[in-house]
C-alpha cells in the first residue's frame, strides 16, 4: 500500500472582507480550505489580531494586563497611538465602554468625538465596538458609523435585538459590520439572513458566534466556529460564509485563572504567565476552528499568537 495524500476540496469559499484604508488596509477571509490546510485550497489571508482599547481607563481589567497600559490608558488617543507605534498593532478595536448606562452613560455625541480623535491619530484600521447594551448600542453605534464615515471601519456588534438601526448606519456610511449571536449556529445563520435581507452586502459582514474563555465554554465556541466554517465550505451555504470574529480578551481577562494570585492558588503557578497563556491558548484554539479576526489585550499574548500564526502558514 502506498500513501496518497487524502485531499478534500470544497465548492464554497469564505468571503474576503477588507477594512481600513490606503496602505494600512487589511483583508481577512477568502479561504477555500479549512484553517491552515493550504495543501488543498486557497488561504490568501492570515488571521488578523486587533489590540483592544477602550474609551475609559480599564479599571476592571486584572493587574497583569492593566499594568501594561497604565501610562497610556487614561486617554484613548494616547492608548491607540501606543498600540500602533510602540506595539506595532496592525488594527485597533475601540470599545465604547463608557457609553454603558452603568459605566458612565456617556452620550452618543461624546462617543463620536472620541472616535474622531482616535481616527485622526492612527493610520491602522479601526474596529468600533459598543458597550454591549442592546438599546444604548443602537444609538451609539449609529452615531459612531457617521463619525467614522469614509474610514472603512468595522462596526459592531449588531445583535438580534438592535440590528436594524446599526445595519442601516453601516450601510449608509460604508462600513463593515459584526453580527453577533449567542453560541448557536442556527442563530448565527438567522441573523446573517435578516441583515442581508435589509440589503446589506454579505461580503461586508463578519460573524461573531460569541467567544468563550479556555475552561469556560471554549469547546462550544470552538465547535460552533468549526461548524460554521464547514457549512460555508462543504455545503456552500452563502449565509455561513462571512469571516469569523473571536472577541477573546474580554472573555479571558475576568476568569479566575487570569485573576487569582499565586498566593491564593499555589497549585496554579505564576499569575502573570498563567494569564498570558490563558489568552494565548484561547486565541490559538479559535484560529484553528476558523476565526479570521481576533480582538485581544495582552501584548505578549498577541505576540505569541502572531508567532503561532506565522508558524502555521
Amino acid at each position: 500500500m502506498s500513501f496518497v495524500v487524502p485531499k478534500e476540496s470544497f465548492n464554497g469559499k469564505v468571503a474576503s472582507v477588507d477594512f481600513g484604508k490606503d496602505d494600512k488596509a487589511l483583508t481577512i477571509g477568502g479561504d477555500s480550505a479549512l484553517p491552515f490546510l493550504s495543501f488543498e485550497g486557497e488561504l490568501p489571508n492570515k488571521p488578523v489580531v486587533a489590540y483592544e482599547i477602550q474609551d475609559c481607563p480599564p479599571d476592571d481589567w486584572p493587574d497583569t494586563v492593566r499594568e501594561v497600559y497604565k501610562d497610556v490608558s487614561g486617554d484613548p488617543v494616547t492608548w491607540a497611538k501606543y498600540c500602533q507605534d510602540e506595539q506595532g498593532a496592525k488594527a485597533i478595536a475601540l470599545r465604547l465602554v463608557s457609553t454603558h448606562p452603568d459605566r458612565g452613560d456617556k452620550s452618543a455625541e461624546e462617543a463620536s468625538q472620541t472616535i474622531k480623535d482616535v481616527l485622526a491619530a492612527i493610520s491602522v484600521p479601526l474596529i468600533i465596538l459598543g458597550s454591549n447594551h442592546i438599546e444604548k448600542d443602537s444609538t451609539v453605534l449609529v452615531a459612531a458609523a457617521e463619525a467614522a464615515s469614509g474610514n472603512n471601519c468595522v462596526i459592531g456588534k449588531a445583535q438580534e435585538g438592535n440590528y436594524k438601526t446599526i445595519v442601516a448606519a453601516a450601510l449608509a456610511h460604508n462600513h463593515k459590520l459584526i453580527a453577533m449571536s449567542e453560541l448557536d449556529i442556527n442563530l448565527a445563520k438567522q441573523l446573517n439572513i435578516l441583515i442581508t435581507q435589509m440589503g446589506f452586502d454579505k461580503n461586508k459582514l463578519i460573524t461573531d458566534p460569541m467567544c468563550s474563555a479556555l475552561g469556560y465554554g471554549l469547546e462550544y465556541t470552538y465547535s460552533v466556529m468549526e461548524r460554521i466554517r464547514l457549512a460555508g465550505l462543504a455545503q456552500n451555504d452563502p449565509t455561513m460564509q462571512p469571516p469569523i470574529l473571536g472577541d477573546v480578551g474580554m472573555y479571558v481577562w475576568k476568569v479566575k485563572e487570569t485573576v487569582a494570585s499565586e498566593a491564593d492558588v499555589p497549585e496554579w503557578g505564576s499569575l502573570e504567565e498563567r494569564g498570558i497563556a490563558w489568552e494565548t491558548l484561547t486565541a490559538t484554539s479559535l484560529i484553528l476552528s476558523g476565526a479570521n479576526l481576533l480582538i485581544m489585550r495582552h501584548p505578549s499574548a498577541i505576540e505569541n499568537v502572531g508567532k503561532t500564526i506565522d508558524e502555521l502558514v
Binding site: L214, A277, L281
Partner: peptide
C-alpha cells in the same frame, strides 16, 4: 511543566 503551563494545557485538552 511549569504549573501555569500544564494548567492551561490540561484545560484545553479537557475542552477539546
Amino acid at each position: 511543566v511549569e504549573k501555569w503551563k500544564t494548567l492551561a494545557l490540561f484545560t484545553q485538552r479537557q475542552n477539546i
